[in-house]
Design a protein around this nucleic acid. Sequence first.
RNA 1: GGCGCGAUGGCAGAGUGGUCAUGCAGCGGACUGCAACUCCGCGUACGCCGGUUCGAUUCCGACUCGCGCCUCCA
Length: 461
Amino acid sequence: MPIRFHNTLTRQKELFTPMNPDQVTMYVCGPTVYNRVHIGNARPAVVFDTLFRLLKLHYNEVIYARNITDIDDKINKAAADQGVPISVISEKFTQAYQEDMDALHVLEPSIQPKATEHVDDIIRIITALIDNGHAYESEGHVLFNVPSMEGYGTLSNRNIDDMLAGARVEIADYKKDPMDFVLWKPSTGGLPGWESPWGFGRPGWHIECTAMINKHFGPTIDIHAGGNDLVFPHHENERAQGMCSHDGPTDYVHYWLHNGMININGEKMSKSLNNFITVKELLDQFPGEQLRYALLSGHYRSVLNFSDELIVQSKSGLNRFYTALKDTADVEATPLDDPRTGVVAQTLADDLNTPEALAAMHGLAGQLFKATDNVERARLKGEFLAGGALLGFFHHQPNAWFAIGADMTLSDADIEQKLTERTQAKKDKNFALSDSIRQELLDLGVEIQDTRAGTEWHRSS
RNA sequence: GGCGCGAUGGCAGAGUGGUCAUGCAGCGGACUGCAACUCCGCGUACGCCGGUUCGAUUCCGACUCGCGCCUCCA
């Protein structure tokens, strides 16, 4: 089963072929750790986590790096405001990020490099760019000289003249060319910084990713992903740095993947609208799995409207999945001979079509409900579980899932007692009593189903 | 101004040159003492106008509307 991706660089769907048939290298832009991340930050983490899971099925080794940006002026500002070292801010929110991602069932990447641990590498690559004639020092700054690179703008599909025509930005006088961007800037007035050949200072934004990729993977990687707002300038500049910091022409990234943005109830998240929703706020109200379902319910390249309705529907969808698991609790799943052939894996192989994958999961659930043959049920359950694992679902036992957020006034023993009374009432044909007991239980968060085997119950919120 | 994206049934959201998405919600039915769960069935969906075609939601062109990026925002 071949894997295909939409590559931002070529603007079309392409067959994925890694440089090394046994090993895939991928890098995803992670958070700047200066506050709790919002739901928009969670989209690439969850989407490309699903990609990571898929790739691991197809290749012996997948090395996945997701960086932590812990050098940034927003961190500097937060630290200055609170009168603490930047490490206090960055460590606190790095920790918070890990917690949020864990709750969304995002697997830990293979490597989580930090900018502060790569300042030497950053300095090395800036030096190389200067040596190659692609960067220059000016008034304590080091700048990448954009006109020195043939093909700048290819990734974001724009040309310099058009950009300058629309620009209304004042050009800093230390720049040779208006498009030149900062690789290193001076730190004065007590700002955090590091010693460098160009004085005490700190790196620009784009260079850390290039440096970390070079350090951990070498000049070229298979996949680089992130939000589509990063295409320009961040990834365009990264690409320029990566390609120009080596002798001779070098590819930087073979497949660029970019996810679309998230809207909140139809509006773009923005500070002025005050509609930023943090992952933490959502996790306080909904299980991570439900949020994950919601994030995967749209194709990753499209805008996703993170509405109240979406969250509700996501819960219903997962309830159906868990009902299927509950109904087949007695069935021992038969694992797929080749997990890559599962219907979910196949839909994901087509440019990570997660809505189609969820539809496939619903298809399997329906078959599971209908099947009567035990061999067939075991096979279906195996495929269903494999699909769930790829999508990052099924971290609960079914009854535990339904009980999330449920009223716990009644103990299990209380419930069993009530059900015994109800069963007796039913035997006595005292349906008024049996129905009132059922309603009482329902009011206390206990749903019941009468089956041939007796009465089943589970808690529900 | 430059570059790009989108418009699918009440909602969400795939996909396809010609019988089918899928889920949620709704309606009818089966099951049930009644329910619940599950199952079966139902709704003349593809922005507008042309073109290509035996046939277009799908391809091509124009239009309308909405959206994104164009300096540190995933």
